[in-house]
């Protein structure tokens, strides 16, 4: 189990680098699909079966299809670097490195690899997740349905040519 985790972790990091470094949006989108699928494998290894399936179906399926559709629709080509993006590179890169180092240091300090031990594997099949979702988390679930209704209406209103 552990070697598989590291293989897919490296794959996810490489694909994420490709998302950030590619100049053509379509290549970024395809790399993002690789990130999402390798994260789904990581979820599976962590015992989150339901979320692994949801990740592949909703994220890699529905959301990324939407992205690729918009990229094709708007005919997004290679981006051109500008003066401001050069400024972001010189100012942003050191700041980001500091931020990342700080976060990694905090993780290392707080959760040393030797001391954290996994609890017993919770049953994370659809039955257990569904029971929790429809008992303890019913109110957030219902609120989410309103959020999705608003999002659907908003998307239609925004993307329509003329109301």
């Amino acid at each position: 189990m552990a070697p598989l985790f590291y293989i897919f972790a490296v794959l996810a990091i490489l694909a994420a680098l490709s998302v950030v470094l590619q100049r053509t949006p379509v290549y970024s989108a395809l790399s993002l699909i690789v990130v999402l699928c390798s994260l789904a494998v990581v979820y599976l290894l962590l015992g989150a079966e339901f979320l692994a399936v949801i990740q592949v179906i909703i994220y890699a399926g529905a959301i990324m299809v939407l992205f690729v559709l918009v990229i094709m629709l708007l005919n997004a080509r290679q981006e051109t670097p500008s003066d401001r993006s050069r400024l972001a590179r010189w100012l942003g890169a050191p700041l980001l490195l500091v931020f990342l180092g700080e976060l990694l240091f905090a993780v290392w300090e707080r959760f040393p690899a030797a001391t954290t031990r996994a609890a017993a594997l919770p049953d994370a099949g659809p039955r257990a997740v569904g029971a929790l979702l429809f008992r303890s988390y019913v109110l957030p679930f219902e609120v989410t349905s309103i959020l999705i209704l608003v999002a659907v209406l908003g998307a239609v209103v925004l993307a329509k040519k003329r109301l």
């Binding site: 590291y6 972790a9 990694l104 959760f111 690899a113």
Partner: peptide
């Protein structure tokens, strides 16, 4: 078993 720190490190990266 993968230590929690490695999972969080992947998340941070």
């Amino acid at each position: 078993m993968v230590p929690l720190a490695h999972i969080l490190a992947l998340s941070v990266i």
